[in-house]
């Protein structure tokens, strides 16, 4: 199918793996941060908001370099995590970390908007019926903000599929380990006769992104029909 070479398949598979892991791993922190920003007024709220949005504004190369400084083998976080056997530098896990960080602001933004849109009066009603705050969150807030949470996850996934600058700066461009779709396309455009491969991978890129968007649209529609608002 598509006439991809084995090397190109490797890049596609790696990209899907990196993007999936990045999205799944940032789901819970994403919801937590979105909830904090949407619902809580605390000291340092503006700082957290800024920090989350930083990767959106900074040049991706800068974000990648900061990750390298922090999570590289000699970086403070990297050295500490290495003691537990968790290594990011020049591994696919590092690519996932870079993608997660880059997609985080998009994810949090969508989730936060939908959490803010949940009718607080429904949560109050649930509380008067005996639900403690955690139960209210799990049975009312979360289901009602599901469309936005899905949208956030899809955005993060799409962003991860396309992330280039931070990834290549942080974990380089190692075929089979850190060479994701964009890196592979970039490499192919730099070698003579690589145009065909670049075009094929571009096509795959478009297909995957479109597929993700479509899937999220279908899911969101199903959810909102279930909520009775469609």
């Amino acid at each position: 199918m598509l006439g991809l070479t084995p090397d190109e398949w490797v890049a596609v598979g790696l990209s899907l793996k990196v993007a999936s892991v990045a999205t799944l791993a940032s789901l819970v922190p994403g919801i937590a941060v979105a909830w904090l920003l949407a619902r809580r007024d605390f000291y340092g709220r503006a700082l957290l908001d800024g920090l989350v949005h930083l990767p959106l504004i900074l040049p991706p190369v800068v974000t990648g370099y900061l990750l390298l400084l922090a999570f590289g083998r000699k970086g403070p976080a990297g050295a500490w995590l290495a003691e537990f056997g968790v290594v990011f530098a020049f591994r696919w896990t590092g690519a996932a970390l870079a993608c997660a960080v880059m997609g985080f602001p998009l994810m949090v933004r969508a989730m936060r908007l939908s959490l803010e849109a949940v009718d607080r009066r429904l949560e109050q009603a649930a509380a008067t019926l005996g639900a403690n705050p955690l139960a209210v969150f799990l049975t009312v807030t979360l289901p009602l903000s599901l469309p936005g949470i899905l949208a956030g996850a899809v955005l993060a996934f799409a962003k991860a599929m396309g992330e280039f600058g931070a990834t290549i700066t942080f974990v380089s461009n190692i075929p089979g380990e850190t060479q994701t779709l964009p890196s592979a396309i970039y490499t192919l455009t730099q070698v003579p006769g690589g145009e065909g491969g670049a075009l094929r991978l571009t096509l795959v890129s478009i297909l995957v992104s479109m597929g993700a968007l479509l899937a999220s649209e279908v899911l969101a529609r199903r959810v909102s029909r279930r909520l009775g608002s469609a």
Binding site: Q124, L129, G130, A135, T139
Partner: peptide, 29 residues
């Protein structure tokens, strides 16, 4: 706290949980 008061409310706007069926709403409390 609210959830331990055992005081149920019927609000003007009812506030049924839209993602649950009538049965689900009745079963909630």
């Amino acid at each position: 706290p609210v959830h331990r008061r055992r005081i149920a409310c019927v609000f003007q706007e009812a506030r049924l949980l839209p993602h649950l069926s009538v049965r689900g709403n009745l079963g909630y409390g």
